[in-house]
Structures are given as structure tokens and as C-alpha cells.
Design a protein around this nucleic acid. Structure first.
Length: 582
RNA sequence: GGGCAUAUAGCUCAGUUGGAUAGAGCAACAGCCUUCUAAGCUGUCGGUCGUAGGUUCGAGUCCUACUAUGCUCGCCA
């Protein structure tokens, strides 16, 4: 709400403080009957040597008697000012509040609260990053959904976003796969169901290696040959990579996610010698137990391993190479890694090495960490097959959605149901990963993911369909009136329900900014949920198409449209596609 | 043992740079479909904010210690 800023400007003038500082202190009272905007005066008590209550009273008087034009103009929009226990509470005129919030929201069109703050700035978001030859389970889903939402949040702020999928396509694990394939591989099975076959031999490798430790050495040797460009190894690696990528792309297609860059670890590996040279040149590399490390004691971290004792590379060296490459090619403003919490230490080390190398703005590299998806009795494990494949979860969710739609809409055509069930079912899964703070672990439960009541994506989508349905059913004359809605009509939205809803709508843009700055889509998600709840209460209590008079009906329909557009915008940022009916 | 997280209602979680009577959803219970979609709405029940100190006019929020849990601590990623 712009008037909040106007109030802050006045207060700042009276108190001779920065407007920004005053804005920070303004808040909303806990209950609507206490006002719309609150200013706590406690911290001013020392400065003025008065009680907060007295200061609040002085400010109230000052507001009410000030004769400057700006102040008079502002006061005209304020119903009254009250003081209560050290708080200065402003009651904004309801008609003004209704008109200004709706106008402000309409200005944003389908993207309310969008901005151009990021113009000319490139942000790299690395996310998803599955490992070749391993199943795409719901743990990868977390990175995929969170990363996409973070990328969307930056785009919404006008940034140029580069979506990176840092494929895990290199490392000792491929040595293991190569060895395992030569021992037990089945070419037909690989064509039939590549990930299953690769997982099978990978699991078998670990089983057998437990009693035959020399297999591990063979695997390391095989990876060494791969890195040296060995023909056999390279051909196998390429094949494993191709078949895996085919499966991953099917999932990304379904999710509507498109990466700008899918260079995996293998892409950066050849750049490592240059990194090693640079580290040597800067005297940062020291030998330790046969390996090459960078000491990070000054950062309170353990040494970062750059080259293993056999001279082959490791993930830290690949990540360092990738940062240098990205800076060179993209001149990024931020380089964001959406990777699980367990790798926090790793990224701290890598970023510390960057700082030691004299990398400009080392804090532009950041780790956006997220919690672990696990079962009640422990973490997922590919080796034991104790995982939930993301596609299975999506299919189950879509199937359940379909059953509900069929029950509620006996006449709906099958193709339409397919389309809607897919969007809602997938949306419900995505929402599960975005609803809470990202660093929280998720204990997987079918029951929770498939609960479509209360705080859920279907609830939000249902609210959107209610708004859409109103528009479909509205008579032509009302729609025309809505097209050219006037201030005098919008000013009719003064009931408690309407005012509450309006205030929640007005908070959406700030929630998007906050979500972006903290890389927490949940912040925006919650605001959207609050708007939906407020709308559903309003919808239940008030008639819209059958309002007391047409002017009020038109205003309420505009309100419903604004709600629909705002929730839809939030859903799209979350990667969830709104539907018209369900 | 060192480091980093986390601890709020029976369960899953919010709680804005420290501010007014700590909030949602689920579960349980009681209501609301002849009325714009009941995947909805309303109400009831439910809390020593892990424990103990400290800072402050004021602490769920900041500091210290402790307890519990999780992650991590070079040749996997």
C-alpha cells in the first residue's frame, strides 16, 4: 500500500529520521479493530525522555494539526488515529483503501508486484543436478522444484536467469559402473529400462565389493582411464550418459522445466589443470599425504582437497573450475547452488578457496541449501532400493486427482480431465516441497502429500477456479461494467471481509520480494494461502453475482478477478499451473 | 572430539531488524449444500515456545551453559 509509505514520510519528517528506518518499524496491528497501520513508539522513549504513550499522543496531535499540503492530503485518507499502550494506530478510510489497492493490483496485470530491479543482471541458478545412471527420486524433486521456484522469483524481479543443470556425470562412481558393466551388464535390459539396469549393476557392485575390496581399486583405476580418455571407458560412459539423459528429459518435459545449460561435471574436468596452475602460481597449493590441498585454517575450515594422491580430480576442483568458467562466460551477478544441506561444508570450502584466490565478490556465490527427504525410519538410499521415484509419486497423485474430478464432474470430457488432473496432481506434489522453510527435513508420507484439503495446492487451485467460474457465469452487462469499473464502485468494498481480503492482496508484492531475497518460496506461498483463505471466507459470506445492487456486484467481481490473478501469479512462480475448473 | 543446523498445540509447520492477548493446516468433536463449485465455510478442543540462567521498559525471537536430534569433519558427490 502506497499510503503506508506516505505515513512513513510524514513520521520521518516529524522525527527527523530516515524514511527507510520508519518503514521498517511500521507494522500491522494484531487485530483489525485496532487499526490498519501501527507505529510502535517504545524505542523513542529514551531520545525524547517521555513515555511511549505520551510520544504516541504527541505524534497523533501533530498529524491532526499539521497544515502542510502533503499532510492535509494524507489526513484526508485517514479515518482516525488512535493511541494504545505506546502504539500509534492509523485507521485508513475504507473506501480509499479499497480503491487504491485494487487500482494498484490492476496495474500489475497478470504479474502483480513484478519489478525491474534486476534489469541487466544475470543470475545463475544451479538446481536439479541428478546423477547419471541413478533413479530420479523425490530427493531430486526437492532441488528441482525449489530451484525452479527460485529461478522464477528472480525472473519476476526482472533478472536475466540462466538455469543450470549440473549433471553428476563424472567421478569414481563411473569407474564402478564401468567395472560392474563389464562383469554383469545386460545390453538388452539397458535398452529396455536403462536406469533400472544401471541401478541393478551399481547395487551389485557394492554388494560384491564388500567382500572384495580390490573392486574399489579397479573402479578408481577405471575412472582414471576414463579421465585420460580411454576408448572403451569413454564409449561406455557416453552410452550411460545418453540413456540416462533421455529419461531425465522426459521428466523435465512433464514438469515444464527447461534448462539453459546442462554441462555436467565432465564438462569442467578438462579445465582443472588450469585451476591447479593458478593455485600453484598463487602459492595456495600444498602437498599433504600425497594429495594436493588448499589450507583454509584462517576460515576455520578443514583443508580443501584439490587433487587426489593418484592425481585425479575431485568434486571440489570441478566446482572451482565451474565458478571460473561461469564468471568468464556469464559475468554473473549471483551464482546460486540449490543443493542439499549435507554439502554445506563443501560449499563453504569451495567459496573460501575462491576468496583466497582473489575472486571478485566471493559472496556472489551462494549455497541455497535444503533439507533431506527421508522416511520415518531413515534416509533414502539408492543402494538398498529404499527410494520413492518421483514419477511414481506424480502418477499416484494424478490418479487420485483424476478420481476426485470424475466424482465431482460426471459430465466432464476425458481429455479435459486428463489435462486438469495432470496439472493439479503435479501441483500438489510441487507444493509439498515449497510450503515450508527449505532447510527443514521432509519426512515422506503418502498421506501428507496426497492430502488435498486445507493447506494444499488443490485448495489454492480451487480458489482460482471459483474466481474463474464467477467470470464465466457473470451476465454480459455486469462484465461490461467491470471492464470500465469506476472508483465510486470500488469504494463500495468496505465490509470487514472485503477489507481483510484487500489488505492481504496488498501484501503479495512484498512477499515476493522477501521470498526472492531469502530464497524462500514458502514466504510467498504462505501469503498466497492467506489470500485464498480470506477470499473463501468472503465468498462464503457475500453474494457476488447476486449482490444487493449491480454496482456492488461489479466491484466484488473485480475483487474476485484480482484475487484470481494474484493467486495464479503466485502459483506460476511456484511452477504450478492454474486451472479454470476442477 | 571440532564445526553447522534444529527444538513452538497430539501431528506437520508459521511467527516479520526484540513489541499489543503466540497463529495456521491436519487429527478429534459440533454445525452449514433447494442459494455464484462442500477439494469449501463456521465453531469447540488443544501451549511451562527443549531446560536453566542473562541482557532489555519488553524475549518464542538476542547472549551463555546444558540436554536431545540431525548433518558434516581430504582421496564419494
Amino acid at each position: 500500500m502506497r499510503i503506508v509509505n506516505d505515513i512513513a514520510v510524514e513520521l520521518a519528517t516529524y522525527l527527523e529520521e530516515d524514511v527507510a528506518d520508519v518503514v521498517m518499524n511500521l507494522s500491522s496491528p494484531p487485530r483489525p479493530e485496532m487499526g490498519d497501520v501501527a507505529f510502535p513508539c517504545f524505542r523513542l522513549a529514551k531520545r525524547f525522555r517521555k513515555s511511549p504513550q505520551d510520544i504516541a499522543n504527541d505524534l497523533k496531535t501533530r498529524f491532526e494539526t499539521e497544515e502542510r499540503d502533503a499532510a492535509v492530503e494524507l489526513l484526508a485518507k485517514i479515518e482516525r488515529i488512535e493511541t494504545a499502550g505506546g502504539y500509534l494506530n492509523f485507521f485508513i478510510k475504507r473506501d480509499y483503501l479499497a480503491r487504491s489497492i485494487i487500482r494498484e493490483s490492476i496495474e500489475g496485470g497478470d504479474r502483480p508486484g513484478t519489478s525491474s530491479e534486476g534489469e541487466g543482471k544475470t543470475v545463475i541458478v544451479e538446481y536439479s543436478s541428478p546423477n547419471i545412471a541413478k533413479p530420479f527420486h523425490v530427493g531430486h524433486g526437492f532441488s528441482t522444484f525449489l530451484g525452479e521456484a527460485v529461478a522464477n522469483l528472480y525472473e519476476y524481479g526482472g533478472y536475466n536467469v540462466e538455469r543450470f543443470n549440473h549433471l553428476g556425470d563424472y567421478g569414481t562412481q563411473f569407474g564402478k559402473l564401468i567395472v560392474a558393466w563389464k562383469l554383469w551388464g545386460d545390453a538388452d535390459a539397458l535398452q529396455e529400462s536403462p536406469i533400472d539396469e544401471l541401478t541393478r549393476i551399481y547395487v551389485k557392485f557394492h554388494d560384491v565389493a564388500e567382500n572384495n575390496p580390490e573392486l574399489e581399486n579397479e573402479a578408481r583405476a577405471a575412472f582414471g582411464r576414463l579421465e585420460q580418455g580411454g576408448k572403451d571407458e569413454l564409449a561406455l560412459w557416453q552410452q550411460f550418459r545418453d540413456v540416462s539423459l533421455r529419461e531425465f528429459n522426459r521428466i523435465y518435459e512433464r514438469l515444464g522445466i527447461h534448462f539453459d545449460n546442462t554441462n555436467g561435471e565432465s564438462f569442467y574436468s578438462p579445465m582443472i589443470p588450469a585451476v591447479v596452475d593458478e593455485l600453484k602460481e598463487k602459492n595456495l597449493l600444498i602437498e599433504s599425504e600425497g594429495a594436493q590441498v588448499v589450507d583454509l585454517e584462517e576460515f576455520g575450515l578443514n583443508p580443501c582437497l584439490i587433487l587426489k594422491s593418484d592425481g585425479s580430480t575431485i568434486y571440489a576442483s570441478r566446482d572451482i573450475a565451474s565458478i571460473l568458467y561461469r564468471k568468464r562466460e556469464y559475468e554473473f551477478y549471483k551464482n546460486i547452488y540449490v543443493v542439499g544441506i549435507p554439502q554445506k561444508n563443501h560449499f563453504n570450502q569451495v567459496f573460501a578457496v575462491m576468496e583466497k584466490m582473489g575472486f571478485p565478490n566471493p559472496e556472489s556465490n551462494m549455497h541455497v541449501a535444503f533439507g533431506t527427504v527421508k522416511f520415518a525410519d531413515g534416509a533414502f538410499s539408492t543402494r538398498t532400493g529404499n527410494v520413492i521415484i518421483l514419477e511414481d509419486l506424480l502418477d499416484t497423485s494424478v490418479a487420485k486427482t483424476r478420481a476426485i474430478i470424475e466424482e465431482n464432474n460426471p459430465t466432464m470430457e476425458s481429455v479435459e480431465i486428463d489435462d486438469i488432473a495432470e496439472k493439479i496432481g503435479v501441483g500438489a506434489v510441487r507444493y509439498t516441497f515449497l510450503r515450508n522453510g527449505r532447510e527443514r527435513d521432509i519426512v515422506f508420507s503418502w498421506e501428507d502429500v496426497l492430502d488435498f484439503e486445507g493447506e494444499s495446492a488443490p485448495y489454492l487451485l480451487y480458489t482460482v477456479t471459483r474466481c474463474a467460474s464467477l467470470e464465466r457465469r457473470a451476465p454480459e452487462s455486469l462484465l461490461e461494467r467491470v471492464q470500465q469499473i469506476g472508483d465510486e464502485e470500488l469504494e463500495l468494498l468496505v465490509s470487514d471481509d472485503e477489507q481483510e481480503l484487500l489488505k492481504e492482496i496488498s501484501r503479495f508484492p512484498a512477499s515476493v520480494i522477501s521470498a526472492r531475497e531469502s530464497h524462500e518460496p514458502s514466504v510467498m506461498m504462505r501469503q498466497v494461502m492467506t489470500i485464498a483463505r480470506a477470499f473463501n471466507a468472503f465468498y462464503h459470506n457475500a453474494h457476488i453475482l447476486r449482490a444487493e445492487n449491480e454496482a456492488l456486484g461489479a466491484a466484488r467481481l473485480v475483487l474476485a478477478q484480482v484475487v484470481g490473478r494474484t493467486i495464479s501469479a503466485g502459483l506460476r512462480i511456484a511452477g504450478i499451473e492454474p486451472v479454470e475448473r476442477m
